[in-house]
């Protein structure tokens, strides 16, 4: 029974499905990493994902062009980010509460639009799996990494890109400065508001694409509350990853791999009650958080709104 877990089919299955499951988390968490590094906690990720998922699905269904769908998710996610930025940066609203407000707004509006514009669950032909020539033929590795849909590849490519932008560019330096010490950044001529607008809108765009990765690539359907809490886990993964893109990747993969492991544990008939099995990813996440929390420190200005003193 337990030894079945170590067969090649099972290991490849766990890893390939772990990477698929991690994709929506990666988009949303990397976007959220940017907002949080600049000092804005966006709890509205789930709502942005839902609206992005709906927009992508609806546009892909009606235009039969998947890239238009992605574009729609980008626009809708960006607009949601813009609204969030206005409320938290210009109006100085409490970030946590307004994030929850935007979540509920996204949940309600995506459901309303779904009922009015589609009325029933439909399917769309989503992004197909792309077999990358040569690489996809490598035994084991090929099957795990190189036979996924295009949005999976883009998500994975965004990790080093995000790391580079945050750590090796002037823009990244400004983002970090604004998140650590907005007064100092301001005194050096960095526009705190402009940087935060940029990161929060970027976060919205990424959440929108995270939604699209579900509705037109992984699942190819839309229904009410499609994301079912994924957006909140994405926010938790930013803490888990200590506000670093590679850490976020590690967290998303760990969480997803444990989730796919528990599915296999049940399929192989390993005698663990299903209730315990489904708790595994959450228990492990909490455990890692507890063990690492003392080592890491959130951006100093996180959740604090900034007003110029002059």
């Amino acid at each position: 029974m337990i030894s079945d877990l170590f067969s090649m089919t099972v290991l490849v299955g766990i890893l390939a499905s772990g990477i698929r499951l991690a994709t929506p988390y990666l988009y949303a968490s990397i976007g959220e990493t940017f907002s949080q590094r600049s000092g804005v906690l966006n709890l509205g990720v789930e709502g942005q994902m839902l609206l992005g998922a709906f927009a992508a699905f609806y546009v892909a269904l009606t235009t039969e062009n998947l890239w238009f769908g992605v574009l729609a998710a980008i626009v809708v996610g960006g607009l949601m980010g813009l609204a969030m930025a206005f409320v938290t940066i210009n109006l100085h609203a409490e970030q946590g509460i307004s994030g929850i407000g935007f979540y509920l707004f996204g949940l309600g509006l995506s459901d309303l639009l779904f009922q009015k514009m589609l009325g029933t669950v439909e399917t769309v032909k989503g992004f197909p799996k792309v077999h990358i020539p040569v690489l996809s033929d490598i035994p084991v590795v090929g099957e795990i990494f190189f036979r996924q849909n295009v949005l999976v590849y883009i998500a994975l490519a965004l990790v080093p890109l995000a790391w580079f932008v945050l750590n090796k560019t002037t823009l990244g330096l400004k983002i970090r400065a604004v998140g650590e010490n907005p007064e100092a950044a301001d005194s050096l001529g960095v526009s705190v508001a402009r940087i935060r607008y940029f990161t929060v809108v970027l976060g919205g765009i990424m959440s929108g694409v995270a939604g699209a990765s579900l509705s037109i690539a992984l699942l190819n359907v839309f229904q009410q509350n499609l994301t079912s809490g994924l957006g909140f886990i994405a926010v938790a993964l930013v803490y888990f990853g200590a506000w670093r893109p590679w850490g976020v990747l590690a967290g998303a993969l760990l969480f997803s791999l444990i989730n796919s492991l528990q599915l296999w544990v049940q399929v192989l008939g390993i005698p663990i009650p299903s209730d315990i099995a489904v708790m595994m990813p959450y228990i492990l996440t909490i455990l890692v958080l507890v063990l690492t929390v003392s080592r890491v420190r959130p951006p100093s200005a996180l959740t604090k709104s900034f007003e110029r003193g002059d």
Binding site: L214, S228, L263, M279
Partner: peptide, 9 residues
């Protein structure tokens, strides 16, 4: 069993 009535993914 996936432990949820709503988790489509």
């Amino acid at each position: 069993y996936i432990g949820s009535f709503s988790d489509v993914a």
